[in-house]
Amino acid sequence: MSEIVKADGIAQPILTVSALKKTYKDGTVALRGVDFTVKAGEIVGIIGSSGAGKSTLMRCINRLIEPSDGYVYFDGIDVTKSNKHQLRYVRRQMGMIFQSFNLIARSTVLGNVLNGRLGYMDSVRGALGIFSKQDIEDAMSILERVGLVNQAHKRADELSGGQQQRVGIARALAQKPKLILADEPIASLDPVTSENIMDYIYRICKEDGITCLINLHQVEFAKRYADRIIGIRAGRRVFEGRAQDLAQDVVQEIYA
């Protein structure tokens, strides 16, 4: 741990979420006003039971879901007010990792990683899949980093779950992101693989100085890997603090 810079040393807030609300069309209220800030280089774990609004929160940050009210500031940009063009610019700086990996099943591993470059490319060139030599080289070195360089030309659905999630991480890394949004990255994996994936995410974020927001169902993982923990219950923030401050009764309150 000692060689890795602790998050507390960096003071710049990179992400500010303020009074964020989301009500779905069917009347379900997912978020009832959530506020928090994330400093650059920090790993923040978001915990809460399923249905607490964790996934909605994450998708409101990169506007895969349109928030109903409130603000998201990312690196000095008001994401909630961004137009189409600005939104592309914001999204490409936020890598996203999904619970069910969400790889393009019939594309190759390399193709999936290269998709991370789309936000930087001309629309037509990207659609036709004409990637620059530099992009391909970068993608290969990222694959090497996650130990999948030998699988680069395999179809994504031929890999095991853990391998697929590593491709998911590689895709996010290909974006050269400032922030990684990981939505339940280990919920579909067995315990051993889960630990392995969390190690990858942790190491990569710390080495590259990437800020990371992770939704986690399991408190244990959050305590081990996150610099700071935010507890969400019924669309509200009910806890914020360091892992060691997360007492048992607080956990119980979050999951009640």
Partner: peptide, 11 residues
């Protein structure tokens, strides 16, 4: 997942 990378509609 592809949308989240900042891909355009066409992409």
């Amino acid at each position: 997942a592809v949308k989240a990378t900042g891909a355009s509609w066409l992409q």
